[in-house]
């Protein structure tokens, strides 16, 4: 490519436009206090999750690791957040738990967003029987209480973190399918979609090349709002007995704290930190998602 002549191919123009849009989002986010602070909090948690092996050795999670330590010891210089009921370091579990909780939360969201977007796009663009069936399935997943549904799915499909993430994804896509569909319905009436159709574009090409880019901001904002729900669901399922005690998520830590009687024993270092971490991350994701929503949809500003 010649460096001296500014490139003007459609592809480059599109990318230039997208870069501009991204810069605008970043500018507005910097001025949105709640959104910016929550982004910083999330990056902090992300950093801790990524550097878990540097902070605490993984072997500290093993049941044998606590053999020589006092059980339910209060915080000290050696154990900054005390020990659990089998003598394991709580801080190590908390740090490694951030990995499990964030991984399941984000992976579940990816599953939900993919299902929700595909169903929403297809149900919105293709009309007729296919749309009716998809909407009926969507309605089913909206009405059926999601926690009992997640429970029966997890019992049958398995209890590993990946399965849990898939199960949570399966139970939380219905709302976003609705949103995407509504947006697609308005977009597909727009002139540029009509133009593409007149030029002979096929259904899938229109959906993915012309309609999808239009709904992407909405999908991103919506995804950010699914993550907190997924993290809460994960903590609930773990609290109820799913998940792995040797690689505990924050919810699993709360389960351990509850079943070991740490509450009546006043072992606050065992149950407070994981609960507060869940609240912080869920709150940060919610505020960040709402900030994105405000930026992408100016009608919501001031709410």
């Amino acid at each position: 490519m010649n460096d001296l002549v500014p490139s003007t191919s459609p592809r480059d123009m599109t990318w230039a436009r997208r870069k501009q849009a991204l810069a605008r989002v970043w500018r507005e986010l910097r001025h949105d206090r709640a959104g910016f602070v929550s982004l910083v909090v999330l990056l902090g948690f992300g950093l801790v999750a990524l550097s878990a092996p540097l902070i605490a050795d993984r072997s500290l999670l093993l049941a044998a690791a606590g053999r020589n330590n006092p059980d339910l010891a209060s915080p000290s210089a050696q154990f900054l957040l005390g020990t659990d009921d089998i003598g394991r370091d709580v801080l190590a579990q908390l740090v490694w738990g951030s990995r499990v909780s964030l991984f399941i939360g984000i992976f579940a969201t990816v599953v939900a967003v993919v299902i929700g977007s595909v169903v929403g796009l297809v149900a919105g663009y293709v009309k007729g029987k296919v749309a009716t069936v998809l909407l009926a399935i969507d309605e089913f997943f909206l009405v059926v209480p999601f926690l009992p549904l997640a429970i029966v799915l997890a019992v049958i499909l398995g209890r590993s973190p990946v399965t849990l993430a898939i199960v949570i994804g399966i139970t939380s896509w219905a709302g976003s399918a609705r949103l995407v569909r509504a947006q697609v319905l308005t977009l597909s009436e727009r002139a540029y979609v009509e133009r593409a159709r007149a030029l002979g574009a096929g259904t899938w090409q229109i959906i993915f090349r012309h309609v999808l880019p239009g709904v992407t901001p909405l999908i991103i904002a919506n995804a950010t709002l699914i993550v907190p729900g997924a993290i809460l669901t994960e903590s609930t399922l773990s609290f109820l007995g799913f998940g792995d005690r040797l690689s505990p998520s924050w919810g699993k830590l709360l389960d351990g704290a509850q079943s070991s009687g740490s509450i009546t024993l006043n072992a606050w270092w065992y149950y407070l930190p994981p609960g507060l971490c869940i609240i912080a991350v869920v709150l940060a994701f919610t505020l960040f998602g709402r900030a994105l929503e405000r930026i992408f949809d100016p009608r919501l500003a001031g709410r």
Partner: peptide, 13 residues
């Protein structure tokens, strides 16, 4: 943002 069982644990404590 708070899981309801965490409320329960706090109230219990």
């Amino acid at each position: 943002a708070t899981p309801e069982f965490f409320f329960g644990m706090l109230l219990l404590a």
